[in-house]
Design a protein around this nucleic acid. Sequence first.
DNA 1: GCTTGCCTTCTCATTGATGAGAAGGTTTCA
DNA 2: TGAAACCTTCTCATCAATGAGAAGGCAAGC
Lengths: 127, 127
Amino acid sequence: MRIGELSRRTGVPARMLRYYEEQDLLRPDRAVNGYRVYPEAAVYRVQQIRGLLDSGLTTDIIRRIIPFLDRPDDIHLHPDCLTPELADLLRSEAARIQQRVECLSRNRDRILAYLAAVEAAKQGAGC
Amino acid sequence: MRIGELSRRTGVPARMLRYYEEQDLLRPDRAVNGYRVYPEAAVYRVQQIRGLLDSGLTTDIIRRIIPFLDRPDDIHLHPDCLTPELADLLRSEAARIQQRVECLSRNRDRILAYLAAVEAAKQGAGC
DNA sequence: GCTTGCCTTCTCATTGATGAGAAGGTTTCA
DNA sequence: TGAAACCTTCTCATCAATGAGAAGGCAAGC
C-alpha cells in the first residue's frame, strides 16, 4: 500500500510516516516511480510506534527495541544476534519501562480511589 | 527550604523547579527578600512530577490531575469540589493512563520474553 | 489532453521540556 | 570590607515531535 492509505488506516499523518522513516522506524520499499510502498504489516507496526511514542518513549529508544517487539519468530531467536551489550540495553530498557508502568499505575489508582471515595461520600450523605 | 536545597534533594535543576512553578505545578511561598521557600512536602511533590513527566505526561495534564494524587486527606474528599466535568476529566485521564500502562506492559513483556527465549536457546545449545 | 488527486522532496514554524548564561541583589563568613 | 555562595529575573538556544506549505512529478477518469 502507499503512504496515503497507510495514513488513512492508521490515522497518522503522512508527514509523520515520513518522519518515522527518517528516524529509521519504518523502511518502506519504493515503487519504480519513487512512491513509498508499505507491506500490510506496516499498519500494525505504525500502531505500535504510536503507542510507544504516546507512552513517552523517544524515537531513539523505539528504534533500538523495536526489532525485538515483534511476534516471536525464529529469525531473531538465534543467540548470535544478541551481543552482551544489546542484552544489557534491552534489560535496562525493560527496567525503565517497568518504572513508568509502576508510576502510571500508582497514579491511575489514586485517581480512581479519589473518584470512588467521592462516590461513597455522596452515597453516605444521601445526596 | 530554598530552591537550591530542593534541587539538591531531588536532583532536579533549579531551572526546572522554576519552570514547574511557571507551569503551576509548584507554588512556593516567598521570603521577604523574594527567595522561594518550599515546604518539606515539596520534595515528594517534585519526585511525583518527575515520575509523571518521565512517564510521558505533559505538564498540562499533570497540573490538572495533581490535586487528586495526594494521600487521601479529607480536604479534597468533599463531593462539592468535584464538578461532573472534572469527574469526567479524571475518568478519561485514568483511562488514558491505563492505555499507556497496557502498551508499556505489553512491550516490556515482549522484551523480557525475547531475552528469556535467547537464554533458553543458549542453554539448550549447551553454549 | 486536462483536471484532480496523490505522491515526491524541501523548507520553515511551532510547541514542550530543557540547558545555559548574563546582570544584579542577598547572605554568610573571614 | 570583600569574597563566595546563594538567590532573583530575563533572555537566548536546543532538541524531539509535529504542523503546514510550496513546487513539482505521476496517474486515473472525463
